[in-house]
């Protein structure tokens, strides 16, 4: 079974810095593999160990995105595809078009694994867009997967229910974080990862026929909410009474 897994080199939200006007310094911001994308890689590796085959990691991003691809290779993916594009475009149409085009070039896939959402610009749109573009079936928010040669069965985690489904292959699947516990690569695996093949494709070569719908970023500013940050001290009973008092004074509880 040929499995592709889409990993994003996401902005590390914890490391993000701001200029004095409150605008985030996106250019040059530290990145890391999307937290849930590790679950997608883990799911791909488990499929391979059950039914055999190859796991190909695919990323769309700037030069830095190579780091996340390497991490997927260190976890156990066999080879990588790096679509070199401008980073941080916030445009799922473009990202999905590039992923679909590069997957068509990279081989015949039975399964394309993604995560439910990217950790920096969570939208959950890229995986179903890739499915629609490739004409594959799609199963979103899978928390359990069972793959045979001809179909995939999955348990989907929806807001109000758990749904079990069967889908023909090829299919795009997005997984939720409770699907598995991602493995940590060993030092040896990390060293070996740099010997695994990575194909680099330029975005403009994949989408030569024309771009995708543009998304322009108008403004970006830091959310800030000022909080009082008052610690209520004393014994447990004293602190609890102080809190109840304070909340009554604020008028936010009516008891």
């Amino acid at each position: 079974m040929n499995v592709a897994v889409c990993v994003k080199h996401a902005v590390d939200e914890g490391e993000l810095r701001f200029d004095p006007a409150g605008r985030p310094l996106i250019e040059g911001a530290a990145g890391k593999m999307g937290a849930f994308d590790k679950n997608a890689v883990e799911a791909a590796l488990r499929v391979r160990s059950e039914v055999g085959g190859e796991v190909v990691g695919v990323t769309v991003g700037g030069a830095d995105a190579r780091k996340s691809l390497k991490e997927a290779l260190a976890m156990g993916a066999d080879r990588g595809v790096h679509v070199l594009d401008e980073p941080h475009l916030l445009n799922p149409s473009r990202t999905s078009a590039l992923l679909a085009a590069s997957l068509r070039e990279a081989g015949q896939f039975d399964l394309v694994l993604c995560a439910e959402g990217s950790s920096d610009t969570y939208s959950g749109l890229v995986p179903p867009m890739v499915a629609e573009r490739l004409g594959y079936a799609y199963v979103g928010y899978a928390r359990k997967l069972g793959v045979t040669a001809s179909e995939v069965r999955a348990e989907r985690s929806l807001e109000e229910s758990i749904e079990s489904v069967a889908s023909p292959l090829p299919a795009v699947i997005s997984v939720v974080s409770e699907a598995n516990e991602p493995r940590y690569p060993t030092l040896i695996q990390i060293m070996q990862a740099s010997k695994k093949p990575v194909a680099e494709v330029r975005a403009q070569d994949l989408l030569s026929a024309g771009g995708t719908h543009s998304v322009t970023i108008g403004s970006m500013f830091a959310h800030s909410t000022d909080r009082k940050r008052i610690f209520l001290e004393g014994t447990t009973d004293e602190a609890a009474a102080k809190l109840v008092d304070a909340l009554r004074k604020e008028g936010v509880i009516s008891v």
């Binding site: 939200e13 916030l90 998304v215 970023i217 108008g218 500013f221 830091a222």
Partner: peptide
């Protein structure tokens, strides 16, 4: 975006 740290206005 960015885990809720930033508010962005996007236009299409």
């Amino acid at each position: 975006v960015y885990a809720g740290r930033v508010s962005a206005t996007l236009t299409s």
